Amino acid sequence: MTQNQTQTFTYNAAPARILFGAGRAAEIADELRRLECRRALILSTPAQQQLAEQIAQQLGELYGGSFTEAVMHTPVAVTEKALAYLQAQQCDSIVALGGGSTIGLGKALSLRTDLPQVVLPTTYAGSEVTAILGQTENGIKTTQRSPRILPEVVIYDVNLTLTLPPALSATSGMNALAHAVEALYAKDANPIVSLMAAEGIRALARSLPRVVAHPDDLAARSDAQYGAWLCGTCLGAVGMALHHKICHVLGGTFDLPHAPTHTVMLPHALAYNAPAAPQAMRVIADALGTDDAVRGMYALAQQLDTPLALRDIGMPGSGVARAAELVMQDAYWNPRPLEQQAIAAMLARAWAGETPAS
């Protein structure tokens, strides 16, 4: 922008309370009391049941029960089961402990009940700071926005991420990067969100290799968590584009793992949109410390030793054409017009693990 140009934009700040720092999980009970809650339901996946039990002991008289059956893509059937348990336990609040699976379940419950949520992320998913819910029913994943979905409190305690294996840390971080990348060329992009996006990309690009190489590096994990918070905030502030639509289709229809799907698809979606979003590509490249956004993102994925092919994470080759067809239905806005044949070709490259190409 030149000196004589003016700007026009809209920025909506999400009214979430953020507590950031090592050891701050100890403040859960205080936050529940501040929200005037008396009986909290703890949510987790089966793998994090032990951590959920520790939080339950910490809550004492504020503990109302635990539901430890959260799974990927927030199936409506699981939400309905959790809702019945919540009501039977007469809980008045939700404590979601984990990554996107648990956070998604908490959001789905809050959408149906309007109960306050306190979230303790253990991954870099970023959905904890958005008013967006993606849920799956009959093999189709849909999204919706509502103020009721946004958690009231998010506690970023880096100690809770120490058990996240390096491989999952890498794909979770790449998932977070996708939020910032698409925020930079979003239809409703604005300077504030773009600053957060660039800083989020920069923080994750420098921290994720350290986390993978030295999983017990608390400073690196804290830096990654900081980047993930910024990227998630971008996701909650502006609309997303082709990359997120593709990942919703692949996850909801083929039950692919969420973060690895984002990881595989991100460089390919960048390549598709690069010709139509040159300014965003320059910002991304600069934040990655490279001269090309697409090559830089693909090189980061390679450095982190993440999956590079959809076929390696469970995608059937026969599903490529169907996926391209579904992407075209109720399509998200995108800087480059969506062309089914071009999208199918991109998905075919991603399925085979080929180098991204415009």
Rank of each mutant, 00 (worst) to 15 (best):
T8D: 12
A14L: 15
R17M: 00
I18R: 06
F20I: 09
F20V: 09
A25P: 00
E27P: 02
E27C: 03
I28A: 09
E31Q: 15
L32E: 04
R34K: 09
R39F: 00
Q48H: 10
A52P: 01
Q57M: 04
Q57F: 00
G64W: 10
T68C: 15
A77Q: 13
T79L: 08
A84N: 07
L86E: 01
Q89K: 11
D92H: 06
D92G: 03
I94A: 04
V95W: 05
G99M: 08
S101Y: 09
T102R: 05
T102H: 06
V118F: 01
A125P: 02
T136S: 13
T142R: 08
R145C: 13
P151K: 11
E152V: 10
T163L: 14
P166D: 07
S169R: 12
A170S: 05
G173I: 09
N175W: 15
A180H: 05
Y185G: 09
A198T: 06
L208E: 02
D217Y: 11
A224Q: 15
Y226N: 08
G232F: 03
T233H: 11
T233Q: 07
M240A: 12
I246S: 00
I246A: 04
P257W: 06
A259M: 14
H262R: 11
T263D: 03
A269T: 13
Y272R: 04
Q279D: 13
V283L: 04
A285I: 00
M297K: 03
L300E: 00
D305L: 14
G317F: 08
A323K: 08
E325T: 10
V327I: 14
M328Q: 11
D330I: 09
D330P: 03
W333V: 03
W333K: 10
A342I: 04
I343C: 05
A345L: 08
A350I: 01
W351K: 00
